[in-house]
């Protein structure tokens, strides 16, 4: 299916934003680790963590957007999202990564690596999805 319009960057990616984990612990967005997502998903009754591998990165409809194709979970479901260049994804074992890390750092003061094909991102699915 065609990707939807680019998702605007939400405020919680700004450095210093306070994030509440599933066990109630508060952390700054820049301090989050892979384990925080894994442990929070383990506690969650609704959400299940999945790995999404970046398969393709193409230009989006507008010059500041990209279309990222992911292969999600064991079933390798193909999912396309169109996001702004600076939109950060959390890569397993690596942390925040975006297609334009310089721009992410400039806009949100969030340190980022370059998101590349083959990177495995944290994603979520609903438990008991029918």
């Amino acid at each position: 299916s065609p990707p939807s319009s680019p998702v605007a960057l939400p405020p919680f990616f700004m450095r210093g934003s306070i994030i509440q984990l599933a066990d109630g612990e508060l952390k700054r967005v820049e301090d989050l680790k892979t384990e925080d997502f894994i442990q929070s998903a383990e506690i969650s009754s609704e959400l299940k963590i999945d790995s999404s591998t970046v398969e393709r990165i193409d230009n989006g409809q507008s010059p500041n957007a990209v279309v990222i194709q992911f292969s999600v979970g064991e079933l390798k479901a193909q999912v396309c999202v169109e996001v702004l260049l600076e939109y950060p994804f959390f890569v397993f074992g690596q942390g925040w990564s975006s297609c334009c890390p310089d721009r992410t750092t400039q806009l949100f003061e969030l340190s980022c690596a370059k998101l590349c094909v083959g990177d495995v991102c944290v994603s979520l699915t609903l438990r008991g999805l029918r």
Binding site: S1, V7, P10, P11, F12, F13, S17, I18, I19, Q20, L21, A22, L26, V29, L32, D36, F37, S40, S44, L47, D50, S52, F70, V72, G73, L75, A77, Q78, V79, V81, V83, F89, F90, V122, S123, L124, T125, L126, L129, R130
Partner: peptide, 25 residues
Amino acid sequence: NVEPRSVPVFPWHSLVPFLAPTQSD
């Protein structure tokens, strides 16, 4: 009187794009 400013707290799952695959079958 100055009201105390509350700091927004965001849930952890809001940071993760929801990539639940659509079940086509």
